[in-house]
Design a protein around this nucleic acid. Structure first.
Length: 121
RNA sequence: UGAAGUAGUCGGAUAAUCGCGUCUGUUAAUCAGAUGAGGAAAGUCCGGGCAUUCAAGGACAGGUCGCCGGAGAAACUCCGGAGUGCGUGAGCACGUGGAUAGUGCCACAGAAAUGUAGACUGCCGAUGACUGUAGACUUAAAUUCUUGUCACAGCACAGGCGAUGGUGCAACGGUGAGUUAAGAGCUUCACCAGCGUAUUCGAGAGGAUACGGCUAGGUAAACCCCGACUGAAUGCAAGAUUAAAUGAAGAACUAAGGCUGUCCGCCAUUCUUCGAAAAAUCGCUAGUGGCUGUAAGCAAUUACAGUCCCAGACAGAUGAUUAUCUAGAAACAGAACCCGGCUUAUGAGCUGCUUCAUUUU
RNA sequence: UCCUCAGUAGCUCAAUGGCGGAGCAACCGGCUGUUAACCGGUAGGUUGUUGGUUCGAGUCCAACCUGGGGAG
């Protein structure tokens, strides 16, 4: 789990990120990317979303969110962030396809998504 | 040994590395320590606490409940009984006041579906100046004529009867016998069902026995009647506080609006939009609490004593990897203000008590 | 988190407690040189599930399942 300062919190921030319409998808997970950073010192904030429409049971949804969060954390720790840290916000959204996958598969998917992020918006 | 019934229990463990929420201490943007989901946290089906709004109050309407006793703050709650039904049995299920207060409904079928019915169909001939008979008797009399009586059949209807009726879930008790012209609970008899009264057992629901008059269709999870209880609405995203400013614009206006559904009665203002889909703090977890023991009680539960403090988030904390073990990879499932129930979901096992069947002694 | 409504044929909807129906679609036949339109016919339902009340439930009662809408 990331600390609070790295988390995306405000409703307005989520809406602003969606409005830019800059996204990548792979095997049931979609990555939305926000604005480019004006300054390198500002930390990149991340949000993880699994909708109630995706699955009814809270346990399954929490499980997917935790797996996504953990794999992102490990990538951040290993320095495999590529170009993702040049943007203000990232949002990972999970869908039906990703529900049945285990940790290793989800880690692969998220590594690929981060690799896809381009330098210029 | 096999098959059942019922009441419980458990809800993965150990180690290593990385990581998160909250609290405490320390430090200055670190480090250490403590602690961190459930039996159903679920469904939201009930009940309460708590909060706000409205209400001077009254009446009616409405709502909820419905065998008996007890427990409980209360409940579509629990415990122990009664009754009815199911099961060989241990046991299980039940929304179980009133149908003689009244109203409605009872399709099709059936003579008739509630009104103590009798129209129709039918049974009888104790009745009749009726009809018939190569029937019997009477007479001397086979035939014919006359006289009457009886029998049988038909017709008539004054009348008797409520047994008969292709039905139907249900037909003013049921089955069998006696009696009778035919019949009938017909103050006849036997057994059974129901109602009333009395006695008796029980705290009560109710049970048992005796006697009586001979009888009252079903449905209230249809309206309803009776009895008991009941302020209403909104739900912590309730609501409170802080700073900005007791802000701005528009509409309705003395009969409209508001006050719970209505009425009586009461109020002087009320509504919409923007500011304001914003920020922080509180509410927020010590409570109708958990555990242990003793006493009372068949039990639910209660009383007393000791001991413990055990999540509190707000894009929302428990995860990932590796190794070992049970059974080679563990079910259902995630707190969101808090309690008490109910209902539903649940892997692999384990334990207590009880019943039935078979075999052996 | 809370409140509320619905579930009937492939689709859209009816149905006083008493034989579950209509329109469109589907299939078959006719009409036409052919198609559409039109005409005639046919099949298709455990009334979301499981219990109960009743002589008898799509309907009444209870518990569940699924889906929609609203508050913020």
């Amino acid at each position: 789990m990331l600390k609070k300062q790295f988390r995306l919190k405000k409703q307005s921030a989520f809406n602003a990120t969606y409005r830019i319409k800059h996204s990548y998808h792979s095997c049931g997970i979609v990555l939305w990317v926000g604005k480019k950073k004006p300054d390198e010192k500002i930390p990149t904030k991340v949000g993880f979303v699994v909708s109630k429409k995706t699955h009814k049971r809270a346990v399954r949804r929490n499980r997917l969110k935790r797996l996504m969060r953990e794999s992102y954390r490990l990538l951040l720790k290993d320095g495999e962030t590529f170009n993702s840290q040049k943007y203000l916000s990232l949002i990972f959204v999970g869908f039906d396809k990703a529900l049945d996958k285990n940790f290793k598969e989800i880690q692969e998917i998220i590594r690929n998504l981060i690799k896809k992020v381009k330098r210029e918006a």
